[in-house]
Computed example of a mutant assay.
Amino acid sequence: MPVLAVLRHEEGVRLDPDPLVALFAELGEGGAERVVRRALLELSEQLSEVAAHFAAGRTDDLIRSARMLAKVAEQVGMATLARVARDVVRTGAAGDLTARAATVARLGRIGERSLAALWDLSEAGG
């Protein structure tokens, strides 16, 4: 009887603390926490939009949403999420449907872990 292999996609995420430190220095604790919470909401919405655009085959909208996601992710120090979002932009522009599907799936996995990590960090800080 053949043995079925189960692949687990458990790659880590990297949060760069420098943008967060700068936010707290510039805006104070309350202001920075509000910015982080807005960023979490925006990132969650963009992740949903990327998935919806991919499922509907709307490549231009997919690229736009992934670019916006990368920009917001960079602003709050989500280095891994920003990099994978830029990968989605590249595969979207290249027209490689297989690569696009793989990077969108990876973005979903990294997005969940990144949002959880930033949420845990924001909760620990305040």
Results as ranks from 00 to 15, higher is better:
Met1Tyr: 01
Met1Phe: 06
Pro2Leu: 12
Val3Arg: 10
Ala5Cys: 09
Ala5Met: 08
Val6Arg: 05
Val6Phe: 01
Arg8Met: 12
His9Ile: 08
Glu10Arg: 08
Glu11Ala: 14
Gly12Ile: 08
Arg14Met: 11
Pro17Asp: 06
Pro17Gln: 05
Pro17Gly: 07
Pro19Phe: 00
Pro19His: 02
Leu20Thr: 04
Val21Asn: 14
Phe24Asn: 01
Ala25His: 09
Ala25Asn: 10
Leu27Ala: 10
Glu29Met: 02
Glu29Thr: 09
Glu29Ile: 08
Gly31Arg: 10
Glu33Arg: 13
Glu33Cys: 10
Glu33Asn: 10
Glu33Ser: 12
Arg34Cys: 08
Val35Ile: 12
Val35Lys: 10
Val36Phe: 04
Val36Lys: 00
Arg38Tyr: 12
Arg38Leu: 15
Ala39Gly: 01
Leu40Lys: 08
Leu40Met: 13
Leu40Ala: 12
Leu41Phe: 14
Glu45Asn: 13
Gln46Lys: 15
Leu47Phe: 02
Leu47Pro: 03
Leu47His: 02
Ala51Arg: 06
Ala51Pro: 02
Ala52Ile: 09
His53Gln: 15
His53Ser: 15
Phe54Ser: 07
Phe54Asp: 07
Ala55Phe: 12
Ala56Gly: 11
Gly57Leu: 04
Gly57Cys: 00
Thr59Ala: 11
Thr59Asn: 10
Thr59Cys: 10
Asp61Lys: 10
Ile63Phe: 06
Ile63Gln: 07
Ile63His: 05
Arg64Gln: 13
Arg64Cys: 13
Ala66Asp: 08
Arg67Asp: 13
Arg67Gln: 15
Met68Glu: 14
Met68His: 11
Met68Ala: 15
Ala70His: 02
Ala70Cys: 03
Ala73Thr: 02
Glu74Val: 03
Gln75His: 06
Gln75Pro: 03
Val76Met: 02
Val76Lys: 04
Met78His: 03
Met78Thr: 05
Ala79Glu: 11
Ala79Asp: 10
Ala79Met: 09
Thr80Cys: 06
Leu81Gly: 03
Leu81Pro: 00
Ala82Gly: 02
Ala82Phe: 02
Val84Thr: 07
Ala85Val: 05
Ala85Cys: 07
Ala85Asp: 00
Asp87Pro: 00
Asp87Thr: 13
Val88Tyr: 05
Val89Ile: 08
Arg90Ile: 12
Arg90Trp: 09
Thr91Leu: 10
Thr91Ser: 12
Gly92Glu: 05
Gly95Leu: 03
Gly95Glu: 02
Asp96Tyr: 01
Asp96Trp: 00
Leu97Tyr: 06
Ala99Pro: 04
Ala99Met: 08
Ala99Lys: 06
Arg100Ser: 06
Ala101Gly: 06
Ala102Asn: 14
Ala102Ser: 14
Ala102Lys: 08
Thr103Ser: 13
Thr103Cys: 11
Val104Thr: 04
Leu107Thr: 01
Leu107Pro: 02
Arg109Asn: 08
Gly111His: 00
Gly111Val: 00
Gly111Glu: 03
Gly111Ser: 03
Glu112Gln: 10
Arg113Val: 09
Arg113Trp: 04
Ser114Glu: 02
Ser114Asp: 05
Ala116Leu: 15
Ala117Arg: 11
Ala117Gly: 13
Leu118Val: 12
Trp119Gln: 12
Trp119Met: 09
Trp119Ala: 14
Leu121Cys: 05
Leu121Val: 04
Leu121Ser: 07
Ser122Tyr: 01
Ala124His: 14
Ala124Asn: 11
Gly125Trp: 15
Gly126Leu: 11
